[in-house]
Structure formats: C-alpha cells, structure tokens
C-alpha cells in the first residue's frame, strides 16, 4: 500500500482532485470543461517535455519564457503579417525551431565548457532572449495573417484544437525517445550517477547538449503555438510558462535532484496543476491568486518529494 502511494502518488493525487472538484462544482465534470483543461494543458505540457530531459540529467533550464517569446516574435515577423513585408510561409516553423535548438545548445555548451552552473547560464540566457525578442519586435504588434498557423488553434476536431492533437503526438514521441533511445535512457542515468557513466566511456556532454537543445526546441514550439492561439507576435507571450512547467515536473515526480521521473510523470504533473487551476476557479477562488497558489505548490511539492533525502550533513544552496 505504502509502495503504491510512493510510486503512483501523483496519479492518485490527480484522481483525488478530479473527484473533489466534481463533487463541489457542477460544471467541472462536463465535456466542455475537460476540453478546456486539455487546451490549457497543451502548451505547458510541451514546455514540460523539454524541461523533463534537462531535469532528469540534474540540470535546470530557466530560459523558457525568453525562448518562447523570441520564437513567437521571429515567427510573427517572418510569416505573412500586418507589419513586415517578409513572408517565408511555413518555412518559418523550421527556422524558429532551429533558433530554439541553437539557444538550448548554446546554454549547454557554455555550462559545460566554461564550467558554470546551468542555473546561472540559463538565467542569463533568459534575459538575453527576452532582450533579443524586444530588439526584433517591429514598431507595432504584428498580426499573424498566415491562416495555416492560426487555424491550429481555431479549427476544432471532436471539440479539440490541433494544438491538443499536436501535443499528444509529441508526448508519444517523447515517451518513445525516453524508452527506446540511448539519449533517453542515459538522461536519467546521468542525473543519478554521472561519474560512473563518464568512467564507463559514455559521452555525457553530448547527451547534455542534446537535452538542452531539445528543450530549446520545445520552448520554440510552445512559442509558435502561442502565436497561433493569440494571433499576434508579442514580446511578453512566453511570460508565465516557467513556473507551471517546473511545478508540474516536480509535482509529477521528476525531481530537481535528477535521476528520477520521466515524461509520463511530468505529464501527470501538468494535468494536476491545470486541473487545480481550473477547479479552483470553478469553485470560486479568485484567479488573481493563481501565482500565489502555484508558488506554494512548488515549495510543498519539492519539500515533500525530497523529505526522505534530508540529512544533517548535506549542503543546501
């Protein structure tokens, strides 16, 4: 029993939340609301996928918001839009994804070769990308006129937008990568015991660069989908992505100390967080309190999940 709670705790928590909210709110357990939850979970899920590989390796990446905003701006000024004359059509998508990959790979390379903690490197990268987004921003808010992108959010199949289907597909790919590729398998192992892997001749640095690059790619994809959803290019579009992503990963069991968790766990974490937000609004909690709630959840989740690791002789920075 206690083993079950340990291994499936987040899933039980999610079930518990759904049951409680269904009892206290009539509208929570409706098809329309479930669709709303999935829509709200899609973009955080994509960010969490990228972050999960990085966290499994015991690193951290804070650059989410900057990279997503930058991606959003690059997209909105290179496709058909209301401000600039550039229009490279759907080629903008690979361009933006490459930009994301490049930012991620740069963070990892700086962290590895200049020997700086990823926390600081990605903090710097966060700022740098926010600033780059501002520099690239044209004079006025560019409206996206490329319908093939905006339709992703508008066009619905069985009540769900293409964004949700795209996210589901990405989750499947990420699960496959986690289970079937050397990169996926080694990512968790790096977080658990890097020295042994180095001694075994595993090229750890390559896997680290790959994880950050993939994470950057995911953030860029999130930036594209945000563009599809809001229909404009905005330097603030990525703001608010970092918190829920970290909270979701930790809630699901992908710990900041590395070596644990995975895509499945992080996705459950995303659902917990989104259901919590949605349910609390349903039962009448002020949405302005949302970030306070998320902040408290992060602290409680990290403290609770690492409680058994507490030792007197342990460095906490």
């Amino acid at each position: 029993m206690s083993n079950l709670i340990k291994s499936q705790g987040p899933l039980l928590a999610l079930t518990g939340l759904v049951v409680i909210f269904s009892v206290f709110s009539e509208s929570f357990a409706s098809m329309a609301n479930f669709a709303a939850v999935l829509e709200a979970a899609a973009i955080p899920a994509i960010v969490a996928i990228g972050l999960t590989y990085v966290l499994m390796q015991a690193s951290i990446d804070l650059s989410v918001e900057g990279v997503a905003s930058l991606a959003n701006i690059i997209l909105s000024i290179t496709v058909a839009n209301s401000v600039t004359t550039t229009d490279i059509g759907l080629w903008a998508i690979p361009l933006v994804l490459c930009a994301g990959l490049l930012v991620g790979a740069t963070s990892a390379a700086v962290s590895i070769y200049v020997r700086m903690p990823s926390l600081i490197v990605t903090l710097g990268m966060w700022l740098t990308t926010v600033g780059m987004a501002a520099l690239l921003f044209p004079d006025r808010l560019p409206q996206l006129l490329e319908t093939r992108i905006t339709q992703l959010a508008i066009d619905k199949q069985f009540g769900l937008s293409w964004i949700v289907y795209l996210t589901l597909a990405l989750i499947l790919v990420a699960l496959w990568v986690e289970k079937y590729t050397r990169f996926g398998r080694m990512s968790r192992a790096i977080g658990e015991n890097e020295p042994v892997l180095i001694m075994s001749g595993i090229k750890v640095n390559r896997h680290k660069i790959a994880a950050f690059a993939l994470a950057g790619g995911c953030y860029a994809l999130a930036g594209i989908l945000l563009g599809a959803r809001i229909g404009v290019g905005n330097t603030q579009s990525g703001v608010g992505l970092l918190f829920p992503a970290i909270a979701a990963c930790v809630l699901g069991g992908t710990l900041l100390s590395g070596g644990q968790g995975g895509i499945r766990q992080s996705m459950i974490g995303v659902l917990i967080l989104v259901s919590l937000r949605n349910g609390l609004i349903q039962i009448g909690v002020d949405p302005l309190l949302q970030s306070a709630l998320e902040g408290a959840v992060i602290i409680i989740a990290v403290a609770g999940s690492t409680w058994h690791l507490r030792r007197k002789v342990r460095v906490i920075k």
Binding site: L119, F243, I246, L256, D286, L288, L289, Q290, S291, A292, L293, E294, G295, A296, V297, I298, I299, V302, A303, T306, W307, L309, R310, R311, R314, I316, K317
Partner: peptide, 27 residues
C-alpha cells in the same frame, strides 16, 4: 530558515515565494 529545515534549495523556496508575493499583491 525553511531552506535549512525543509532542505529545499534557496532558488526553489524563493521562486515559490516570488509566486506567492505576486499572487497576494495581485489579489
């Protein structure tokens, strides 16, 4: 004090606190 007692890294505690302060301020 909580950083030491809960043994949670300072950036996590203070990131959480950031959210809490912001939420309370907004409210």
């Amino acid at each position: 004090w909580m950083i030491g007692r809960l043994q949670v890294p300072s950036f996590v505690i203070s990131l959480g606190a950031l959210g809490i302060f912001k939420g309370i301020g907004m409210y």
